[in-house]
Write a protein that binds this DNA or RNA. Structure first.
Ligand SMILES: NC(=O)c1ccc[n+]([C@@H]2O[C@H](COP(=O)([O-])OP(=O)(O)OC[C@H]3O[C@@H](n4cnc5c(N)ncnc54)[C@H](O)[C@@H]3O)[C@@H](O)[C@H]2O)c1
Ligand SMILES: NC(=O)c1ccc[n+]([C@@H]2O[C@H](COP(=O)([O-])OP(=O)(O)OC[C@H]3O[C@@H](n4cnc5c(N)ncnc54)[C@H](O)[C@@H]3O)[C@@H](O)[C@H]2O)c1
Lengths: 237, 237
DNA sequence: CCATCTTTGTGCACGCGTTCACAAAGACAT
DNA sequence: ATGTCTTTGTGAACGCGTGCACAAAGATGG
């Protein structure tokens, strides 16, 4: 979700709806599991169940990629794995830098699922000089001032931000200036980026608050039966 | 995002659209920052800019909560902080259990932003007996078999899953059986839950793949100018 | 070759979410 | 009290996403 300018009109990239793009990794994961079990073909119904979506939706999603199914049979698992991988750009290598090697950054660096899909950690960066040179997940932490060199030399186009919120915009600006055009932000801030740069955010706090909202609602619906359970709310001063 | 049964028809809870609920934490964060700077009022235009959304959308969002603005002036910051907090259920305490205290689970336990908004870590649970008793972020790791007791005793309704994917469904089942009705899942799996249980997922791998898709598209649009840049794709067998 | 059966691919309708644009509300000065 | 100016609250239009339902495609068996 790009936060800076939200004036991207739901970017239907190459005719593939954004909502579909967001589900492709889900399908890919389910298909990979089937592939490992050497299942040759799968029906839209089965695959949809495994991915937790509606089967019509899945078929429509696949129809955007082309017609890869066989009526009466289903989809060829291996072939679909290949097609989706290619569509998502996972047939190539994506060097990634992680900025901010604290609790979270270190966990991310140690995360195995990273490398598994073509994402390779090119470097770990931190502003703390005390961390410099220290090995995290087998990689040395390097100083943030090496950012520009590393991004240029390793052709990094994806950056992961795991710094405190206060440093996130500054780090973003440096990443963008250095040539990074995709950012995954774990810091709880809205980032401003120029057009052409994609930002996606992962925000634990927001997720919990959304859960709390629904949780409160569930509890409220049980407890009290008054039609108007909340304070009518009046403007104070 | 509930994954199990997606047959919730966009649950317009108490008349508040789901999309609005998801933005309330964003507004709250921006408002809290204003409040700390002792800013008394804010216009929809300013607040929208701070939250990275369209101002009309923000006004419509607030209109679902009631009419808390003053025409010609804007919104009272303190009052709005209170109203949104109340609406999200943040005026009460939410005990949370974290299951799976590995790299990620430990980082989550150490995360300060947790406690700041009424979310209190009630317990850290792990299946690894070697971890039992060890202190993480000042809390002792307890064995997974204490789950049922802890959930019941501490009235836990929110669970965070940071176990490997293979254990996630089993942990989910135990959490649900014990009475947890909201789950935040960090494991890369689709979870099945009964109706009435909310699941939201945070999936690093999916986010990166979505970024890679757009990244590939950007690169492709520059490099080659052929109208049809991809392999036409033919069924193999 | 024909009949049957399974499963895809999609036309269609509907509802949610977004955004524009503006009338009404209210503050504030004179 | 009246006028001006700012900003809210919302009606209306539009586009995207979803899911039903079904025709067409193709496999399979006789
Ligand atoms: N820990 C979690 O589970 C968690 C969860 C959700 C969100 N977050 C967010 O992720 C971010 C990191 O969290 P954390 O717990 O790892 O924090 P942390 O304090 O452990 O680590 C932050 C790291 O960033 C480094 N840093 C600070 N300024 C920098 C700069 N300008 N350039 C480069 N590096 C810089 C620090 O030296 C430190 O090593 C925070 O924004 C936090 O809110 C963390
Ligand atoms: N580390 C990351 O940055 C990261 C990022 C995205 C997703 N994830 C996902 O989060 C999960 C945890 O990642 P991690 O890197 O912390 O892994 P980890 O192996 O470091 O930690 C997993 C922990 O779960 C515990 N565990 C295993 N089975 C359990 C069970 N049945 N009940 C309770 N505890 C159990 C293990 O003892 C271990 O302590 C994984 O599913 C991973 O895919 C991690």
């Amino acid at each position: 979700m790009a936060t800076g300018r939200s004036h991207r009109p739901a970017t239907r990239s190459r005719g593939i709806p954004e909502a579909t793009v967001a589900r492709l990794p889900l399908y890919l994961r389910a298909l990979t599991a089937l592939s490992e079990r050497s299942v040759p073909t799968v029906s839209s119904e089965e695959l949809a169940a495994a991915a937790g979506v509606n089967s019509a939706k899945l078929r429509k999603d696949f129809s955007y990629l082309g017609s890869y199914g066989t009526r009466g049979v289903g989809y060829d698992v291996e072939y679909l794995v290949y097609q989706i991988s290619r569509e998502l750009g996972l047939t190539q290598d994506w060097p990634v830098v992680i900025v901010g090697i604290g609790n979270l950054g270190a966990a991310l660096a140690n995360y195995g699922g990273f490398a598994s899909r073509g994402f390779r950690v090119a470097a770990l960066l931190d502003a703390d000089t005390a961390l410099a040179g220290k090995l995290v997940a087998g990689l040395p932490v390097r100083h943030i001032d090496e950012l520009e060199t590393i991004v240029a030399d390793s052709q990094v186009s994806i950056g992961v931000i795991a710094t405190p919120a206060g440093a996130a915009q500054e780090v973003t600006d440096r990443l963008v200036a250095a040539g990074v055009t995709s950012i995954l932000n774990f810091a709880p801030t809205v980032l401003s980026v120029p057009d052409g740069v994609d930002v996606r955010k992962v925000d634990l706090s927001i997720e919990l608050q959304i859960l709390a909202f629904h949780e409160q609602r569930k509890a409220g619906d049980e407890d009290r039966q008054e039609p108007d359970g909340d304070v009518p709310a009046v403007m104070p001063a």
